[in-house]
């Protein structure tokens, strides 16, 4: 779930090193990334996954010739075969193409992770920067909210929400985001507090910059790179959360496929169709792994001093 206080603790290092984002920082980063094959491979894998997920409709109609919900119950539990593309990963208990469902599952899982992380990022950045900049009562409120939410075990909260509401992918992702912004907020707040005392910010303030302009022009650009890294890691964490919550039956409801509920379903039919268990499991592991690796790599590229410092899980 959210990168929590420990993560933020680790991030205290860069404060002394922060400088204004310049072309140099980004070009340095790109240079470093180009010499980091692990990160490049992980990025490539992610790009492929995202492309496949985005092209799910196109691929389903023109390549697999199957819709994700299309059933053929008389050919259920079929083992993977190379005969037709839709049979590549076999069929499930209703004779649906596992390959096509994996594609759509990617779409749902990546959307839940991506959109959830984006929500978390927007809330966390806004709350963190404003709290750090204005301090006072607003800061107290934000800190209190963060501490409170950090004190409720996340799955318990998701359970109670699962009882009260029936969530479709979109509100589900949004809700995950509403719970996931804490780490990002902590980091943004800490950075803002130290940045607002720096000379160039003070200078800008004396010149008469409005607070909004100050935050948007001078503070956010400085902290954004690492926030993006935190966001990448958050995506991975949310994908794992989705699979966990699906496992206990309160996640995305079938027949809409997500990697989480496909995995749960496969576990039910293990004796009839053992082949169903590997594709969604591997998809989750590989995606989350790549997200972490890219997060790690980006962070190293942006600031080599931080090597190994972030990426705590949940």
């Amino acid at each position: 779930m959210a990168a929590t206080d420990a993560t933020v603790q680790q991030l205290r290092v860069p404060v002394a090193e922060t400088r204004r984002v310049s072309a140099g920082l980004w070009s340095d980063a790109v240079w470093r990334l180009r010499h980091d094959p692990t990160t490049l491979v992980a990025m490539a894998v992610l790009v492929v996954f995202v492309t496949l997920a985005l092209g799910a409709d196109f691929l389903a109609t023109s390549f697999f010739h199957r819709a994700f919900s299309q059933q053929d119950i008389l050919s259920s539990y079929e083992k993977p075969s190379l005969a037709e593309p839709w049979q590549w990963l076999g069929t499930d208990e209703l004779g649906r193409s596992q390959a096509v469902r994996l594609l759509y599952g990617a779409r749902v899982s990546l959307f839940v992770g991506g959109f959830g992380a984006l929500t978390a990022l927007v809330i966390g950045l806004t709350a963190g920067v404003t709290a750090g900049y204005f301090r006072g009562w607003w800061d107290d409120v934000v800190v209190w909210l963060v501490t409170t939410l950090n004190s409720i075990p996340r799955l318990y909260l998701l359970l109670i929400v699962g009882i009260l509401w029936r969530l479709e992918p979109f509100p589900f992702a949004m809700f995950l985001g509403l719970l996931g912004w804490l780490g990002i907020c902590n980091y943004a707040r800490g950075q803002t507090i130290s940045l607002r005392e720096r000379e160039y910010v003070l200078a800008a303030r004396t010149v008469g910059c409005t607070p909004l302009r100050l935050m948007v022009r001078h503070i956010v650009p400085n902290i954004l790179p690492l926030i993006i890294v935190l966001g990448m890691i958050e995506i991975g964490q949310l994908i794992l959360t989705e699979s966990a919550i699906s496992f206990i039956g309160f996640g995305i409801q079938p027949p809409t496929p997500s990697w989480g509920n496909m995995l749960t379903n496969a576990a039910q039919y293990l004796s009839k169709a053992p082949h169903l268990i590997f594709p969604p499991g591997l998809a989750v592991v590989v995606t989350v792994l790549c997200l972490y690796l890219v997060g790690d790599g980006l962070r190293d590229a942006l600031d080599p001093r931080l090597r190994g410092a972030i990426g705590t899980r949940r």
């Binding site: 420990a6 993560t7 950090n150 318990y156 206990i248 899980r313 949940r314």
Partner: peptide
């Protein structure tokens, strides 16, 4: 020192993990 700090994360993780593991 930072390891002790990270216990916070581990604890939070536990309470959620438990739900799954206990099932």
């Amino acid at each position: 020192i930072p390891v002790v700090t990270s216990f916070g994360t581990i604890l939070l993780l536990f309470f959620s993990g438990q739900l799954i593991i206990e099932r």
